[in-house]
Protein backbone atom coordinates (compact mmCIF):
# COMPACT_ATOMS: atom_id res chain seq x y z
CA UNK A 1 0.00 0.00 0.00
CA UNK A 2 1.69 3.16 -1.17
CA UNK A 3 -0.76 5.97 -0.52
CA UNK A 4 0.09 9.42 -1.80
CA UNK A 5 1.36 11.29 1.25
CA UNK A 6 -0.56 14.37 2.40
CA UNK A 7 2.65 16.35 2.45
CA UNK A 8 5.97 15.31 0.92
CA UNK A 9 8.91 17.61 1.54
CA UNK A 10 11.89 16.92 -0.72
CA UNK A 11 15.37 18.40 -0.64
CA UNK A 12 14.28 21.57 1.17
CA UNK A 13 17.08 24.08 1.76
CA UNK A 14 16.59 27.49 3.35
CA UNK A 15 19.05 30.32 3.82
CA UNK A 16 18.81 33.40 5.98
CA UNK A 17 20.68 36.49 4.94
CA UNK A 18 21.92 38.35 7.99
CA UNK A 19 24.33 41.20 8.59
CA UNK A 20 27.05 38.74 9.51
CA UNK A 21 26.63 36.48 6.50
CA UNK A 22 24.39 33.84 5.01
CA UNK A 23 23.12 31.19 7.38
CA UNK A 24 22.28 27.83 5.84
CA UNK A 25 19.44 27.07 8.19
CA UNK A 26 18.09 24.01 6.37
CA UNK A 27 19.92 21.65 4.01
CA UNK A 28 18.28 18.91 1.93
CA UNK A 29 15.48 18.31 4.39
CA UNK A 30 13.01 15.68 3.24
CA UNK A 31 10.24 13.73 4.91
CA UNK A 32 6.59 13.02 4.34
CA UNK A 33 3.36 12.74 6.29
CA UNK A 34 0.51 10.49 5.32
CA UNK A 35 -3.19 10.91 5.83
CA UNK A 36 -4.12 10.42 9.49
CA UNK A 37 -0.49 10.11 10.46
CA UNK A 38 1.24 12.08 13.19
CA UNK A 39 4.89 12.83 12.64
CA UNK A 40 7.05 14.44 15.27
CA UNK A 41 9.83 16.81 14.31
CA UNK A 42 12.26 16.83 17.23
CA UNK A 43 15.57 18.49 17.90
CA UNK A 44 17.13 21.08 20.13
CA UNK A 45 16.40 24.80 19.75
CA UNK A 46 17.87 26.15 16.53
CA UNK A 47 17.82 22.83 14.73
CA UNK A 48 15.44 24.18 12.07
CA UNK A 49 12.17 22.57 13.12
CA UNK A 50 10.11 25.73 13.04
CA UNK A 51 11.86 27.07 9.94
CA UNK A 52 10.81 23.90 8.11
CA UNK A 53 7.22 24.56 9.11
CA UNK A 54 7.38 28.27 8.23
CA UNK A 55 8.88 27.48 4.84
CA UNK A 56 6.09 25.04 4.05
CA UNK A 57 3.48 27.55 5.21
CA UNK A 58 5.13 30.35 3.27
CA UNK A 59 5.46 32.55 6.33
CA UNK A 60 9.25 32.77 6.56
CA UNK A 61 10.75 36.08 7.66
CA UNK A 62 11.67 38.44 4.85
CA UNK A 63 15.33 37.50 5.38
CA UNK A 64 14.67 33.81 4.73
CA UNK A 65 14.87 32.32 1.27
CA UNK A 66 14.08 28.85 0.01
CA UNK A 67 17.04 27.87 -2.17
CA UNK A 68 15.91 24.41 -3.24
CA UNK A 69 13.27 21.80 -2.74
CA UNK A 70 9.64 20.97 -3.15
CA UNK A 71 6.77 20.55 -0.75
CA UNK A 72 4.12 18.53 -2.55
CA UNK A 73 0.68 19.00 -1.05
CA UNK A 74 -2.57 18.11 -2.77
CA UNK A 75 -0.85 17.80 -6.15
CA UNK A 76 0.83 21.20 -6.00
CA UNK A 77 4.23 22.37 -4.86
CA UNK A 78 3.61 24.76 -1.98
CA UNK A 79 7.03 26.33 -2.42
CA UNK A 80 6.25 27.24 -6.02
CA UNK A 81 2.83 28.80 -5.33
CA UNK A 82 2.58 32.56 -5.31
CA UNK A 83 1.55 34.30 -2.11
CA UNK A 84 -2.07 34.71 -3.25
CA UNK A 85 -2.65 31.04 -3.99
CA UNK A 86 -0.79 30.00 -0.88
CA UNK A 87 -2.94 32.29 1.29
CA UNK A 88 -5.98 30.51 -0.15
CA UNK A 89 -4.57 27.19 1.10
CA UNK A 90 -3.40 28.41 4.47
CA UNK A 91 -6.04 28.05 7.14
CA UNK A 92 -8.19 25.97 4.82
CA UNK A 93 -6.08 23.03 3.67
CA UNK A 94 -3.07 23.40 5.92
CA UNK A 95 -3.09 25.07 9.30
CA UNK A 96 -0.64 25.83 12.00
CA UNK A 97 -0.78 26.37 15.72
CA UNK A 98 1.98 27.98 17.71
CA UNK A 99 3.59 28.03 21.09
CA UNK A 100 2.62 30.78 23.55
CA UNK A 101 -1.06 30.77 22.64
CA UNK A 102 -1.72 33.92 24.64
CA UNK A 103 0.49 36.05 22.39
CA UNK A 104 -0.49 34.14 19.26
CA UNK A 105 -4.03 35.51 19.43
CA UNK A 106 -5.01 39.05 18.56
CA UNK A 107 -5.21 40.70 22.00
CA UNK A 108 -7.95 43.18 21.17
CA UNK A 109 -10.34 41.03 19.14
CA UNK A 110 -12.97 38.78 20.67
CA UNK A 111 -11.92 35.15 20.22
CA UNK A 112 -15.21 34.25 18.57
CA UNK A 113 -14.55 36.93 15.96
CA UNK A 114 -11.06 35.54 15.34
CA UNK A 115 -12.49 32.12 14.57
CA UNK A 116 -15.22 33.70 12.46
CA UNK A 117 -12.62 35.68 10.47
CA UNK A 118 -11.02 32.46 9.25
CA UNK A 119 -14.36 30.84 8.48
CA UNK A 120 -15.54 33.82 6.47
CA UNK A 121 -12.23 34.14 4.66
CA UNK A 122 -12.27 30.54 3.42
CA UNK A 123 -15.97 30.32 2.72
CA UNK A 124 -16.59 28.07 5.72
CA UNK A 125 -19.48 30.31 6.74
CA UNK A 126 -21.24 33.45 5.62
CA UNK A 127 -20.80 36.61 7.60
CA UNK A 128 -24.20 36.06 9.20
CA UNK A 129 -23.59 32.42 10.12
CA UNK A 130 -20.00 32.89 11.24
CA UNK A 131 -20.68 33.73 14.91
CA UNK A 132 -22.76 30.58 15.31
CA UNK A 133 -20.21 28.49 13.43
CA UNK A 134 -17.50 29.90 15.70
CA UNK A 135 -19.45 28.80 18.76
CA UNK A 136 -19.76 25.32 17.20
CA UNK A 137 -15.96 25.23 16.86
CA UNK A 138 -15.58 26.26 20.50
CA UNK A 139 -17.85 23.36 21.46
CA UNK A 140 -15.73 21.05 19.36
CA UNK A 141 -12.54 21.99 21.23
CA UNK A 142 -14.54 21.48 24.42
CA UNK A 143 -14.59 24.96 25.78
CA UNK A 144 -17.21 25.12 28.49
CA UNK A 145 -19.89 27.78 28.10
CA UNK A 146 -18.91 28.52 24.48
CA UNK A 147 -21.54 31.24 23.94
CA UNK A 148 -20.02 33.37 26.67
CA UNK A 149 -16.39 32.49 25.86
CA UNK A 150 -16.85 33.55 22.25
CA UNK A 151 -17.29 37.09 23.57
CA UNK A 152 -14.09 36.94 25.62
CA UNK A 153 -10.76 38.53 24.81
CA UNK A 154 -7.58 36.41 24.99
CA UNK A 155 -6.39 38.15 28.17
CA UNK A 156 -9.51 36.94 29.95
CA UNK A 157 -8.70 33.28 29.22
CA UNK A 158 -6.08 30.88 30.56
CA UNK A 159 -3.17 29.66 28.43
CA UNK A 160 -4.78 26.25 27.92
CA UNK A 161 -8.04 27.91 26.94
CA UNK A 162 -6.19 30.14 24.46
CA UNK A 163 -4.53 27.10 22.89
CA UNK A 164 -7.96 25.52 22.42
CA UNK A 165 -9.02 28.71 20.66
CA UNK A 166 -5.92 28.42 18.46
CA UNK A 167 -6.88 24.85 17.65
CA UNK A 168 -10.41 25.97 16.86
CA UNK A 169 -9.02 28.60 14.47
CA UNK A 170 -6.66 26.11 12.86
CA UNK A 171 -9.24 23.38 12.44
CA UNK A 172 -12.21 25.60 11.58
CA UNK A 173 -12.00 24.77 7.87
CA UNK A 174 -11.13 21.06 8.35
CA UNK A 175 -7.58 21.18 6.96
CA UNK A 176 -5.84 18.12 5.58
CA UNK A 177 -2.67 18.98 7.48
CA UNK A 178 -2.01 20.56 10.84
CA UNK A 179 1.42 21.76 11.89
CA UNK A 180 1.61 22.14 15.64
CA UNK A 181 4.71 24.11 16.62
CA UNK A 182 5.41 23.27 20.26
CA UNK A 183 1.73 23.66 21.08
CA UNK A 184 2.16 22.74 24.72
CA UNK A 185 5.18 24.87 25.60
CA UNK A 186 4.26 27.19 28.42
CA UNK A 187 1.29 25.13 29.53
CA UNK A 188 1.25 23.13 32.73
CA UNK A 189 1.65 19.37 32.47
CA UNK A 190 -1.98 18.38 32.90
CA UNK A 191 -3.08 20.95 30.33
CA UNK A 192 -0.36 19.64 28.00
CA UNK A 193 -1.88 16.18 28.03
CA UNK A 194 -5.39 17.53 27.49
CA UNK A 195 -4.29 19.61 24.51
CA UNK A 196 -2.33 16.74 22.96
CA UNK A 197 -5.29 14.37 23.41
CA UNK A 198 -7.59 16.94 21.86
CA UNK A 199 -5.37 17.38 18.80
CA UNK A 200 -5.00 13.63 18.43
CA UNK A 201 -8.70 13.02 18.71
CA UNK A 202 -9.74 15.74 16.27
CA UNK A 203 -7.08 14.56 13.81
CA UNK A 204 -8.35 10.98 14.12
CA UNK A 205 -11.93 12.04 13.42
CA UNK A 206 -11.13 13.70 10.13
CA UNK A 207 -8.09 11.71 8.99
CA UNK A 208 -5.99 14.84 9.24
CA UNK A 209 -2.21 14.52 9.02
CA UNK A 210 -0.28 16.21 11.82
CA UNK A 211 3.28 17.45 12.10
CA UNK A 212 4.12 17.93 15.72
CA UNK A 213 7.17 20.06 16.40
CA UNK A 214 8.68 19.58 19.82
CA UNK A 215 11.90 19.20 21.74
CA UNK A 216 10.18 16.81 24.10
CA UNK A 217 10.99 13.30 22.90
CA UNK A 218 8.83 11.65 25.53
CA UNK A 219 5.80 13.61 24.36
CA UNK A 220 6.66 12.79 20.75
CA UNK A 221 6.93 9.10 21.51
CA UNK A 222 3.60 9.07 23.26
CA UNK A 223 1.57 10.82 20.60
CA UNK A 224 3.31 10.29 17.28
CA UNK A 225 3.54 7.48 14.76
CA UNK A 226 6.92 8.50 13.45
CA UNK A 227 9.70 10.69 14.72
CA UNK A 228 12.01 12.79 12.56
CA UNK A 229 15.13 13.94 14.41
CA UNK A 230 16.73 17.18 13.26
CA UNK A 231 20.14 18.59 14.09
CA UNK A 232 21.51 21.91 12.82
CA UNK A 233 19.26 22.00 9.77
CA UNK A 234 19.74 18.35 8.77
CA UNK A 235 17.48 15.40 9.27
CA UNK A 236 19.71 12.89 11.01
CA UNK A 237 17.25 10.09 11.63
CA UNK A 238 13.65 9.23 10.87
CA UNK A 239 11.92 6.17 12.27
CA UNK A 240 8.70 4.90 13.77
CA UNK A 241 8.55 6.10 17.37
CA UNK A 242 8.83 2.73 19.05
CA UNK A 243 11.72 1.67 16.88
CA UNK A 244 13.61 4.89 17.48
CA UNK A 245 13.25 4.47 21.22
CA UNK A 246 14.24 0.81 21.08
CA UNK A 247 17.15 1.24 18.74
CA UNK A 248 18.35 4.69 17.81
CA UNK A 249 20.96 4.49 15.05
CA UNK A 250 22.29 8.03 14.80
CA UNK A 251 24.74 8.98 17.56
CA UNK A 252 22.90 12.29 18.08
CA UNK A 253 19.50 10.62 18.33
CA UNK A 254 20.94 8.19 20.83
CA UNK A 255 22.33 11.01 22.94
CA UNK A 256 19.02 12.83 22.70
CA UNK A 257 17.22 9.74 23.99
CA UNK A 258 19.69 9.37 26.81
CA UNK A 259 18.91 12.93 27.76
CA UNK A 260 15.18 12.28 27.91
CA UNK A 261 13.67 11.44 31.27
CA UNK A 262 11.43 8.39 31.11
CA UNK A 263 10.02 5.68 33.34
CA UNK A 264 13.28 3.78 33.50
CA UNK A 265 15.81 6.58 33.56
CA UNK A 266 16.29 8.48 36.77
CA UNK A 267 17.18 12.15 36.63
CA UNK A 268 20.73 11.44 37.84
CA UNK A 269 21.41 9.10 34.96
CA UNK A 270 20.40 11.65 32.34
CA UNK A 271 23.29 12.66 30.14
CA UNK A 272 23.78 16.00 28.51
CA UNK A 273 25.06 16.15 24.96
CA UNK A 274 28.56 17.63 24.85
CA UNK A 275 29.16 20.65 22.63
CA UNK A 276 26.60 22.86 20.97
CA UNK A 277 25.15 23.48 17.54
CA UNK A 278 27.84 24.59 15.09
CA UNK A 279 27.82 28.17 13.86
CA UNK A 280 25.83 27.82 10.64
CA UNK A 281 27.42 30.95 9.13
CA UNK A 282 30.77 29.15 8.83
CA UNK A 283 32.05 28.53 5.33
CA UNK A 284 33.90 25.33 6.35
CA UNK A 285 30.92 23.45 7.80
CA UNK A 286 31.60 19.70 7.62
CA UNK A 287 29.10 17.61 5.61
CA UNK A 288 27.87 16.11 8.86
CA UNK A 289 27.09 19.01 11.13
CA UNK A 290 27.18 16.74 14.17
CA UNK A 291 30.63 15.35 13.44
CA UNK A 292 32.42 17.91 15.61
CA UNK A 293 30.40 16.78 18.63
CA UNK A 294 30.50 13.10 17.69
CA UNK A 295 32.40 10.31 19.45
CA UNK A 296 32.08 7.95 16.48
CA UNK A 297 33.63 10.31 13.99
CA UNK A 298 35.94 8.76 11.38
CA UNK A 299 37.55 9.91 8.15
CA UNK A 300 34.47 8.71 6.30
CA UNK A 301 32.53 11.57 7.87
CA UNK A 302 34.21 14.01 5.49
CA UNK A 303 32.17 12.55 2.61
CA UNK A 304 28.76 13.96 1.71
CA UNK A 305 26.05 12.86 4.12
CA UNK A 306 24.55 9.44 3.31
CA UNK A 307 20.89 8.53 3.52
CA UNK A 308 20.78 4.95 4.66
CA UNK A 309 17.72 2.81 5.08
CA UNK A 310 18.32 0.65 8.12
CA UNK A 311 14.90 -0.87 8.69
CA UNK A 312 11.24 -0.49 7.88
CA UNK A 313 10.79 3.27 7.26
CA UNK A 314 13.91 3.79 9.32
CA UNK A 315 16.41 6.16 7.74
CA UNK A 316 19.65 7.45 9.18
CA UNK A 317 22.12 10.00 7.85
CA UNK A 318 25.36 8.70 9.28
CA UNK A 319 28.44 6.83 8.05
CA UNK A 320 28.95 5.02 11.32
CA UNK A 321 25.50 4.38 12.75
CA UNK A 322 25.08 2.57 16.02
Amino acid sequence: MTAVPTLAIEDLSVEFRTRSGTVKVLEHVGFSVERGETVALVGESGSGKSVTAFAVMGILDAAGRVTSGRAMFGGADLLALDERDLAEQRGRELSMIFQNPRTALNPIRRVGRQIADVLVRHGGATRGDAPRAAIEMLKKVRIPDPERRAEAYPFELSGGMCQRIMIAIALACRPALLIADEPTTGLDVTTQAVIMDLIGELAGESGMATIFITHDLALAAEYCDRIVVMHAGHIVEAAPGRELFARPRHPYAAKLLAATPGETASLESLASIPGGLPDLRRADLPPCRYSERCERRTDACAQPLPRRTVGDRHIVACWNPL
Binding site: I59, R90, F98, L105, N106, R109, I169
Partner: peptide, 26 residues
Protein backbone atom coordinates in the same frame (compact mmCIF):
# COMPACT_ATOMS: atom_id res chain seq x y z
CA UNK B 1 6.45 41.24 13.74
CA UNK B 2 4.32 39.90 16.56
CA UNK B 3 3.04 36.38 17.07
CA UNK B 4 -0.62 37.06 16.40
CA UNK B 5 0.13 38.53 12.99
CA UNK B 6 1.97 35.31 12.17
CA UNK B 7 -1.15 33.44 13.27
CA UNK B 8 -3.32 35.66 11.09
CA UNK B 9 -1.06 35.05 8.11
CA UNK B 10 -0.89 31.34 8.84
CA UNK B 11 -4.70 31.32 8.82
CA UNK B 12 -4.60 32.69 5.30
CA UNK B 13 -6.41 35.92 6.19
CA UNK B 14 -6.37 38.45 3.35
CA UNK B 15 -3.45 40.90 3.49
CA UNK B 16 -5.95 43.75 3.88
CA UNK B 17 -7.47 42.12 6.96
CA UNK B 18 -4.04 41.37 8.39
CA UNK B 19 -2.76 44.92 7.94
CA UNK B 20 -5.86 46.90 8.90
CA UNK B 21 -8.11 44.81 11.11
CA UNK B 22 -5.35 42.94 12.91
CA UNK B 23 -2.18 45.04 12.81
CA UNK B 24 -3.35 48.63 12.58
CA UNK B 25 -5.94 48.44 15.33
CA UNK B 26 -3.24 47.15 17.65
Amino acid sequence: GSDFIRTARASGLAPRTVVFTYAFRN
